[in-house]
């Protein structure tokens, strides 16, 4: 009997272990096996009814216990698997959402870039051609003159075109306000301007490439062109056009006043002639200092003065070299004596500066100052301008405001209030220039 019981228990344990591994179907097999064993016991101990009933009861208890135990374990396992599955499902859903958003974003970006390439006439082969010619320009001066004449817009022409574009944009801005239609960036306006003026796509593209090249070449020597480039790239306020024009007028007025004080006995006509002459030539030390400190404070003036003196030093060194060369050329066998050399070297040149150079330094200081002031705003705007077109949608604008701690502290209602002011007609296109205008309001 004990032997059979032992076999029975061993069988049960074996089956229990197996069930854990295999699964729910095994439960039926266990029941079947136990029933078989029971029948075997019944046959063996038929004669003893009492013993038979005891065994049956005990076996039934063991069977029930095992059933419950297995069911509990299985339900726990199933629960665990369910949780894992749900967890994985959530991860996959999140990933799916992320990638679908990314695809959507890339589609928009792709669309914008395609439009941008067409609009700005970015033609790689043409650019290569221009760059190749530019390289030739460095090695062959004669060819370069022809190239500049045909391809590179002169500073004077560039300024005229820029003014035409500015005036046309002012008119367009007025129309937008009157008709309550969304405004466009200066870059897009420039494209429309050339399209309207020249019509032919190739011609428009050629103009845009030429403008682009001229901006790159002249930005370091002309403030107006530098400013135009920055406006196209949404790096500065459009109001700076007016501000810099006023600054230029102030400089000219101070120069006129300076000349009147310096030459009180000269007639108006003579003074005007002198003034026009100054615009094309040099400003004396007293003149540029009076103008500088009339416009800027002592502190700022000192900073600019250091920059002016640095330029003057460079110019004077160049003049010394020129003098030495002239002397060498005039001497027999190009030999200069030590005395002659020392004489030129000890020459103290006046601290004079070309008017154009002075104007550039003063205006450049202002542009740099404004750029520094706008830097944190521009950084945030570009961060949230996902399609890099200089325009935010409502969602991007709210994200931008939320990223600024002091605005976030004022609450969502403040941001919505700001949004309503910037976009009162719900055009949902928030231009860099317009957002900047409201951020500058006091």
């Amino acid at each position: 009997m004990k032997f059979f019981l032992k076999i029975f228990i061993t069988n049960i344990e074996y089956i229990k272990d197996k069930t854990e591994e295999i699964g729910n179907e095994i439960i039926n097999n266990i029941s079947q096996t136990i029933n078989n064993i029971l029948h075997l016991f019944i046959k063996l101990f038929e004669k003893n009814n009492n013993f038979q009933s005891i065994i049956r009861k005990q076996l039934e208890i063991v069977l029930n216990y095992l059933k419950e135990d297995i069911e509990r374990e299985f339900s726990n396992k199933i629960e665990k698997i369910k949780k894992e599955l749900n967890k994985n499902l959530k991860v996959y859903n999140d990933e799916k959402e992320f990638y679908s958003n990314k695809i959507e974003r890339l589609e928009i970006e792709n669309k914008y870039m395609t439009e941008h390439l067409i609009k700005s006439g970015f033609n790689i082969s043409k650019k290569f051609e221009i760059l190749n010619k530019e390289n030739e320009n460095k090695t062959n001066k004669k060819n370069s003159i022809e190239f500049i004449k045909t391809k590179l817009i002169s500073i004077k022409n560039m300024k005229e075109i820029i003014n035409e574009i500015y005036n046309s944009k002012i008119e367009y801005d007025k129309k937008c306000i009157e008709n309550k239609i969304p405004n466009i960036t200066m870059e897009l306006h420039m494209f429309n301007f050339f399209s309207k003026k020249y019509g032919l796509k190739n011609l428009v593209n050629e103009w845009i490439i030429n403008i682009d090249m001229a901006i790159k070449i002249y930005s370091n020597e002309d403030n107006d062109i530098n400013l135009f480039g920055k406006i196209l790239r949404n790096e500065i306020d459009e109001n700076e056009i007016t501000f810099l024009n006023k600054l230029k007028n102030s400089i000219n007025e101070y120069l006129q006043l300076c000349l009147i004080n310096k030459y009180p006995l000269k007639s108006k006509k003579e003074l005007n002639k002198l003034y026009l002459n100054k615009l094309e030539n040099y400003l004396n030390e007293d003149e540029w200092k009076i103008i500088l400190y009339s416009i800027y404070s002592k502190e700022e003036g000192k900073i600019i003065e250091r920059r002016i003196l640095k330029i003057i030093k460079e110019l004077n060194n160049n003049r010394k070299k020129e003098l030495l060369n002239d002397l060498k050329n005039s001497c027999k066998k190009n030999i200069v004596t030590r005395d002659e050399y020392d004489k030129i070297n000890s020459n103290k040149f006046d601290l004079i500066i070309p008017y154009k150079e002075f104007l550039y330094i003063i205006m450049d200081y202002r542009i740099c100052y404004k750029e520094k002031y706008l830097k944190p705003f521009i950084y945030l705007f570009k961060k949230y301008d996902s399609d890099i077109n200089g325009i935010l949608n409502e969602e991007e604008f709210i994200k931008l405001c939320d990223s600024i701690s002091f605005i976030k502290k004022l609450g969502h209602s403040y941001i919505i209030q700001l949004l309503n002011k910037i976009d009162p007609y719900i055009l949902k296109e928030l231009l860099f220039q317009i957002v900047l205008k409201y951020f500058q309001m006091k």
């Binding site: 600024i404 701690s405 002091f406 951020f439 500058q440 006091k442």
Partner: peptide, 30 residues
């Protein structure tokens, strides 16, 4: 525009001014 405290006085400044001031303060902290 936004209300801000400058030299213990409440003043109205632009959002851009405030953004700039915060940037300078952060730079100084760093």
């Amino acid at each position: 525009m936004i209300e801000d405290i400058n030299n213990d006085q409440q003043v109205t400044i632009s959002l851009l001014d405030k953004l700039c001031i915060d940037e300078i303060n952060n730079e100084n902290k760093e």
